[in-house]
Amino acid sequence: LITTATVIYLLLIRRRGTALLIFVAVAGGQLLSSLLKVGVDRPRPELVSHLVNETSLSFPSGHAMLSAVTYLTLGSLAARFLPGRTTKVYVLFLAVLTTVLVGVSRVYLGVHWPSDVLAGWCAGFAWAMLCWLVA
């Protein structure tokens, strides 16, 4: 929802390049996450009963990876245009905090090993930075 709203807004203000960057970053991150899951083929933990039902593979955590891709990309783009250092730090802090909370929730819900989440964060960060450098 946040990604779609941001892309539409950027298209409305005629920032097509930035809209494309966000779309490619998030869509590419989703594709990369799916490919990594199939490549690793790790089952979900069965130590505790899951608080939610998940049917996909475990490694890496897609939620952790996509939250890193989405929120770090959006946060870094927003920080680029915001005035003042305090505001920039605040927006980047919110992006990192949201990413961390999403990852921690996946372990709390019992649907991922901590290593799944850590791998998702690392892969998401790497993908977001690659997209940023290419842009």
Rank of each mutant, 00 (worst) to 15 (best):
G17H: 08
G17C: 00
G17A: 13
T18W: 03
T18L: 10
T18N: 02
A19M: 12
L21W: 11
L21P: 00
I22Y: 06
F23A: 15
F23R: 05
A27V: 11
A27Y: 07
G29A: 11
Q30G: 08
L32S: 02
S33E: 08
L35S: 03
L35Y: 03
L36R: 03
L36S: 07
K37S: 13
K37N: 08
K37L: 12
V38W: 11
V38A: 14
V38G: 01
G39M: 12
V40C: 14
R42K: 11
P43Q: 09
P43N: 07
R44T: 12
R44Q: 11
P45S: 12
P45F: 07
E46Y: 05
L47N: 08
V48I: 10
V48R: 15
V48W: 15
S49V: 12
H50V: 10
V52M: 09
E54L: 09
E54A: 14
S56F: 04
L57A: 01
F59R: 00
F59G: 02
F59L: 09
F59I: 08
P60W: 01
P60D: 14
S61R: 00
H63L: 06
H63K: 03
H63M: 02
A64V: 00
A64Q: 04
A64L: 02
M65H: 01
S67M: 05
S67Q: 06
S67D: 08
S67V: 03
V69Y: 01
T70Y: 06
T70D: 04
Y71I: 07
Y71M: 14
L72F: 03
T73C: 11
T73K: 04
G75K: 06
G75Q: 07
G75R: 01
S76G: 05
L77H: 03
A79F: 01
A79I: 04
R80E: 15
F81V: 13
G84D: 15
R85F: 11
T86L: 10
T86I: 05
T87N: 13
T87C: 08
Y90L: 15
Y90N: 02
Y90S: 11
V91G: 12
V91C: 08
L92N: 12
L92H: 04
F93W: 06
A95F: 06
V96L: 13
V96S: 09
L97T: 13
L97R: 07
L97A: 14
T98W: 05
T98R: 03
T99E: 13
L101G: 10
V102Y: 05
G103V: 01
G110H: 09
G110P: 06
G110I: 02
W113A: 03
P114V: 04
S115K: 04
D116H: 05
L118N: 01
L118D: 03
A119T: 07
A119G: 13
G120K: 03
W121T: 04
W121P: 07
C122K: 01
C122A: 14
A123P: 04
G124T: 09
G124M: 06
A126Y: 02
A128C: 08
W132H: 15
W132V: 04
V134W: 15
V134I: 15
